[in-house]
């Protein structure tokens, strides 16, 4: 829960910044952009949690993987498509999809942590 919240907070703040810039240019703030941030980060969290053997580099950071990249972009694309649509209904649907992805990310990270082998105290 904390991990999903913390990572998503970064994405939502960044997307809100872009929305603020677009809002100052246009006069109307694209409210759906923070939801796109939520969707993109949640999609990446789900993909990383679903990777069967996640790879780590020598410094402990995660190694880039093709599976993770493809799944995260594939999961985030509906949110992107809905955000670019002009119809309000589609934008609302994209926002709802992003919220669903967020709850899915919390579930997936929880499952990942529970299924890790208990060797963390090494």
């Amino acid at each position: 829960m904390s991990a999903a919240l913390y990572c998503n907070a970064h994405a939502v703040v960044l997307a809100a910044g872009v929305a603020a810039v677009a809002g100052l240019l246009n006069g109307t703030v694209p409210w759906h952009l923070p939801f796109l941030g939520l969707g993109v980060m949640s999609a990446s969290l789900i993909a990383e949690s679903l990777a069967s053997v996640p790879k780590r580099l020598v410094d402990g950071t995660s190694a880039p993987g093709v599976f993770v990249a493809c799944v995260s972009i594939g999961l985030a694309l509906p949110a992107l498509a809905g955000s670019t649509a002009h119809l309000l209904f589609l934008r609302l649907l994209a926002a709802f999809y992003s919220v669903c992805l967020f709850t899915g990310a919390i579930t997936c990270i929880g499952r990942r942590i529970r299924t890790l082998p208990s060797r963390s105290a090494r």
Binding site: L14, V18, A19, I113
Partner: peptide, 20 residues
Amino acid sequence: GFVLLLGSVELVLATSGPTA
């Protein structure tokens, strides 16, 4: 925003994601 988010997400998750 999507491109910026993809890059930023990669940077955040590299050090603070479920794998790291």
